[in-house]
Nucleic acid binder design. Structure first.
Lengths: 327, 327
DNA sequence: CAAGCGAGCGCAAGAACTTGCGTACACTTG
DNA sequence: CAAGTGTACGCAAGTTCTTGCGCTCGCTTG
């Protein structure tokens, strides 16, 4: 098996091996003409261009998101991307598309690309029933990682979360102060940890009529329809799209938001001031959370041990026009 | 400059260079235990594993987007991501963050990662005054690429676009039929090709009072404020966020949408049914466009020559409640 | 329990790639 | 037009990686 890459290419172009070597490594001392001739010959001969990443490697950081339908995820990607870029990292954004690439496959891919670390948001780690084997793999390789928003308990990564209990307190308290007593809630899937935390907080606050739904406008509409039929006067939703779906459900039932039923969202994603009615929602401080996540990650990457703790951020109730005193 | 990859790894694992070399090349004669020990050491030391050892060669495709604030881009990313995944490609999403990583740097990065091809959407190629050197580099390397939505003329890549002229016709015609005669338009930056195309179409239709703006809600609001002061009765906007900004501008002026002023958006991004009022907008067929872009790219990647033509897709006017007969 | 066998590994030769240095040639400068 | 200057490139020595060969050791088999 005679490889002789350099020699073959050199012969083809009519230069010395040394020159080819210099081109391959981006060294100076080669004219542009010769350089491009060599590169062309490489392509013609079907050689793979070298990953000339010796020395300084591209500092890649993976950013794994579950979807892009919920505007909070693109917004979060923006914050994290900015923060990473400022620290000289290059963000590579991976979104799990329905039925497409799985989280484990993305992880595999990122490992192959030798990312310096990974930020996960809303990933499988948030679902109790999903498979978590690939996280173990990451841990055994000591790959720096940060998880955003409540994860299952047995993952020893640093976490950055929005305090679900406080979020529920704020939403629930707001509704109570408006006189609501028959409160419903539309949460995510039953094994979704942030939803479970919200559920727990709801129980602590006095309980609610809870429905689980897929995280989409349609899921919210379906779940809210049931709640409306059961006579709730207010609905707390676990995301803004769910809330928009709930609003639609209320209207389909011939009722008004907020006169008949108040709706509270969660996230305060973009353009929620422009909805009809403008959505009362619990804002996640994604700017601060994103920056914190990147800082935790950067610390790990530069070799400092970071305790696998959960940093809890305070959400903030943003009262707009989808909540009103009970009828 | 002592690199000694093999030697270093060998020392770390406690085997000979020969053994490491065999592992790196997948040669027989190494026990599974030793093999995986070597691989682990490689990863720990941050060395790149040669191509043969990576499962199957990752078929990466870059997807370069300008921003994620406008929901049309995440939506497009979703479509393209799905289509790529179905064909066995792995989408790597790169978003240019403000002041962060430039398009040229992303390109560099993607080339280093040996992407099979790149889909560009709303990139610098759409701006006449931006630098285009990195595109030349791509062309000279014959890297498969597809550009989405109007590009400057001298780029010989296949293009997938939404027909700006038809979009304007539909919006303009709709407003005319509602009796509007003093029509304004909020377009993107003056060197933005799709905006220029819309401008041309507007002129052909009968002209309008045109303002240029940054692509953001605030930009739309600022531009629309001027138009409102000048007394237009309808505003065509070059994106949905611009239109939302225009709606806000109209209201700040103490007027009503659509009673006093009609607003038409462009894209039909998610949740535009939930806005107040629900937005009349010109829908880009992003599903079809995304799939076409991926098909063009896949063809190039599999070696078929693809004509550097522009595929024009028909937009569709979606009439909701932000447009009404002139007062 | 000895002989046989083969997987696993190191040794070291040699192949492949890199690089310091010198030369040639072009282009400027006195 | 000679001398100066600098870039481009080849030579060959130096470095790193690959591989044929044989040693060792554990397991099997008679």
């Amino acid at each position: 098996m005679t490889q002789r890459r350099l020699a073959e290419v050199a012969a083809k172009v009519g230069v010395s091996e040394a020159t080819v070597s210099r081109v391959l490594n981006g060294k100076p001392g080669v004219s542009d003409a010769t350089r491009s001739a060599v590169l062309t010959a490489l392509d013609v001969l079907g050689y793979e261009r070298p990953t000339q990443l010796r020395g300084e490697r591209a500092r890649l950081v993976g950013l794994v998101l579950p979807e892009l339908q919920n505007p909070i995820f693109p917004a979060f990607a923006d914050v994290v991307g900015n923060a990473l870029a400022q620290r000289g990292f290059t963000p590579v954004l991976c979104t799990r598309t329905a039925g497409g690439v799985t989280e484990a496959e993305y992880l595999e891919l990122l490992l192959e690309q030798h990312v310096s670390g990974i930020v996960f948001a809303g990933g499988l780690y948030a679902q109790k029933d999903a498979s978590h084997g690939h996280y173990q793999q990451m841990m055994s390789r000591k790959l720096p990682a940060v998880l955003v928003n409540a994860a299952i308990d047995d993952l020893a990564f640093p976490r950055v979360s929005c305090d679900d209990a406080v979020a529920v307190e704020q939403a629930y308290g707001h509704l109570l102060s408006l006189g609501h007593r028959r409160i419903g809630a539309v949460l995510g899937p039953p094994d979704h940890v942030p939803s479970l935390r919200k559920l727990e907080a709801i129980t602590k606050q006095g309980g609610a009529d809870v429905e689980h739904a897929m995280f989409s406008l349609e899921g919210g509409q379906a779940a809210a329809t049931k709640l409306v039929q059961r006579g709730v006067t207010a609905i707390i939703c676990a995301s803004d799209p769910l809330a928009l779906g709930a609003i639609r459900a209320v209207r389909r039932a011939g009722l008004d938001v907020p006169k008949d039923i108040s709706i509270i969202g969660y996230d305060d994603s973009a353009f929620m001031t422009c909805t009809d009615p403008p959505l009362t929602t619990v804002r996640q401080p994604i700017e601060a959370m994103g920056r914190a996540a990147v800082e935790l990650l950067a610390n790990q990457i530069s070799g400092n041990a970071v305790a696998p703790d959960e940093l809890l951020f305070e959400p903030e109730l943003v009262v707009r026009a989808s909540s009103a005193p009970v009828r």
